[in-house]
Design a protein around this nucleic acid. Structure first.
Length: 586
RNA sequence: UCGGGGAUCGUCCAACGGCAGGACUCCAGAUUCUGGCUCUGGAUAUCUAGGUUCGAAUCCUAGUCCCCGAACCA
């Protein structure tokens, strides 16, 4: 295994990663969806003279999570399919909520998911402020916008509600010259927040609330992390269509919650006479059972130290998943298998994410031996000082990965879970008098059990081995059902293993409706730290980010907290063990 | 009940007037030096009621249910 790890959850790593087999291209392409159909129509109708261009427009006010990942895969796959371009655009129009920290993290996470640099395709809405401002003046001059003097409360009151039409503001028909002068004064910082606002002049009585003279610019004293102090900042509904247009976006995909905003999106483009305007297409966002994605909730978990940080392996953030060991390909596979629809948003089972992880990890992870709960076994008829080395294949799914050497000696560790004094029927593992195979090594038979006289706890096993079964194959061809993983005690490397379970309790499905705080839905057993695990010596010095399969246990990733002499492994996902658990159910 | 959107296996997605199919999950079996992987077989769905049609998940009418929307958030 490589000691030059590159795909770790650590902060130092950028987009560069891709262990063989874990990039987006190693997983089946996205199936057709309705958006592809719409774009094909646009191409057939020659709607655009420029290449197809999509974008992912996050607001940099939190860390990237699975919801964002879905949007990235959709946009990127669309661009790829039509040989077009894909942009990352920071939708940074609200300096009060955004931060440079998030901007940088967002880009790194997107690039990690993509497995490549975004080179010249990273944009910022804030870079368009001058152009956006000029467009606003045009709007005013064309009498499509006016400066409002009503207070926020008054505006709300004038706007009406679902059942009552709004009334026009008394400032609605002020002359464009006056609005223009006031707008420039807003820009110059002459007013305090809330004193003035620029409004689009559309229809105060529209049945679509978004069209009731929406606010275009508001005054904010915050200094933008990138653009500096502008005093006035554009609203999403205004900045978004125009940013799309400026960038040459053709198809602007977003969640269905923005469907009501589409008339407004189109209105700005039309009034500003944008040629070949971009087109907004909404798709159904999807939730994942047992997972909360809301940014402010995730932030709370970090701030209250309920988790160790945004990259806590239990977090549904991209860097959390990454630190836990989830390969990009698993996220791509998950998102692509989900498909894209415009039906009502639904909830997908976490199972599918885990299934995707197993699929990719099975293909790509070296098999190693790791014992989580060590139980010593002494092979009584094995010479005291003898050490044999077995060369084993790294990954049977991928023989090209080569082999690994594994030492064997008289004293070994096996897993406590692999021994039962009084086993149920169909239990294939070790018990007194029973013979099992030590994988790739020898057949052994349990000949004795050593117990702590005080507690009665099993502290050691005695066994004999069959010298004619070297490599694990008995000379007489007899069938041995059980195969155990093991680590030579003398050569064992001590390790810490962190077992993760769902961060939230199943009741979290009621979280949104319950109005109870998120803390009440945290699974108290979401993290179990094992400090006494042992692993085979080939793992000495593994690099953070390396992913392995502990045979018969699960997939694990090396945590950045590791030291060369004491690696730390995060459990990414368990192996399926349905059949085994079933023998205990009866 | 003001506007917008949507209803297909338990879940997610196909089928675009012509045999309702795939994936996850579940069940049964085969194989196996990982109780993994792989393979085989099986189970489960067109919201309701009318209509058009040789033929409807698809088109029409009515109804029901669900989601989104009244930030100077995105």
């Amino acid at each position: 295994m490589s000691k030059q790890g590159s795909d770790s959850g650590g902060e130092a790593q950028g987009f560069a990663n891709a262990k063989p087999g874990t990039g987006p291209d190693t997983v089946p392409a996205a199936p057709n969806n309705f958006i592809i159909g719409l774009i094909e129509e646009d191409i057939a109708n020659k709607r655009y003279s420029r290449p197809i261009c999509t974008r992912f427009p996050p607001e940099p006010n939190g860390y990237m999570h699975m919801g964002h990942a879905k949007a990235v895969t959709i946009g990127h796959d669309l661009a790829e399919r039509f040989h077009g371009l894909f942009n990352l655009r920071m939708d940074d129009t609200n300096p009060a909520a955004e931060d440079l920290e998030y901007v940088e993290a967002m880009q790194r996470d997107v690039e990690w998911l993509l497995g490549k640099s975004l080179e010249g395709r990273v944009f910022h809405a804030s870079d368009y402020y001058p152009q956006l401002y000029a467009y606003a003046e045009q709007l005013i001059q064309k009498d499509h916008a006016y400066v409002e003097e009503l207070t926020a409360e008054q505006i709300k009151e004038y706007r009406g509600n679902y059942h009552a039409a709004g009334r026009p503001s008394p400032f609605r028909n002020r002359p464009p010259e006056e609005s223009l002068r006031l707008f420039r004064e807003m820009r110059a910082g002459k007013f305090a927040p809330g004193e003035r606002v620029l409004r689009a002049k559309i229809d105060p009585a529209s049945p679509n609330m978004n069209m009731r003279d929406p606010i275009v610019y508001r005054i904010l004293t915050d200094v933008h992390h990138r653009a500096g102090a502008w005093h006035i900042y554009p609203m999403y509904d205004y900045a978004h269509p125009l940013s799309d247009a400026i960038e040459g976006i053709t198809h602007s995909t977003c969640g269905k919650e923005f469907a009501n905003h589409r008339p407004l999106y189109d209105w700005f483009l039309e009034k500003l006479e944008i040629k070949e305007p971009p087109r907004q297409i909404e798709f159904a966002e999807i939730g994942i059972t047992g997972i909360v994605l809301g940014k402010r909730h995730l932030r709370k978990l970090v701030e209250q130290k309920i988790v160790s940080g945004w990259d806590d392996p239990r977090m549904p953030t991209i860097r959390g998943l990454r630190r836990r060991g989830c390969p990009q390909a698993a996220i791509w596979q998950f998102c692509r298998e989900l498909g894209v629809s415009n039906s009502s948003p639904g909830e997908v089972h976490v199972d599918r994410l885990e299934h995707a992880m197993r699929e990719v990890l099975n293909r790509t992870s070296p098999r190693v031996m790791g014992v989580l709960y060590p139980l010593k076994v002494v092979i009584e008829n094995y010479p005291d000082d003898r050490v044999e080395t077995f060369d084993v294949i790294k990954n049977p799914e991928n023989p090209a990965d080569g082999t690994l050497s594994r030492p064997f000696s008289k004293e070994l560790y096996i897993d406590r879970a692999d021994f039962m004094e009084d086993p149920p029927k169909k239990y294939h593992r070790l018990s007194p008098g029973k013979e099992v195979r030590l994988r790739y090594a020898y057949l052994i038979t349990c000949t004795g059990v050593v117990k702590d006289p005080a507690t009665g706890e099993v502290i050691e096993l005695r066994a004999t081995y069959d010298p004619l079964s070297q490599g694990g194959e008995p000379a007489d061809g007899r069938k041995v059902q059980g195969t155990l993983h093991w680590v030579s005690a003398r050569h064992a490397l001590h390790a810490e293993v962190r077992l993760y379970d769902s961060l939230f309790t199943p009741e979290v499905e009621q979280f949104e409706k319950s109005e109870r705080p998120i803390e009440e839905f945290i699974n108290p057993a979401s993290l179990e730290v094992l400090t006494d695990a042992v692993v085979e010596p080939s793992l000495r010095g593994v690099a953070a980010g390396e992913r392995v399969q502990f045979e018969r246990v699960g997939y694990f990733a090396v945590d950045p907290d590791s030291t060369p002499e004491r690696p730390v492994f995060n459990r990414t996902v368990e192996l399926r063990d349905k059949k085994f658990s079933k023998i205990f159910q009866k």
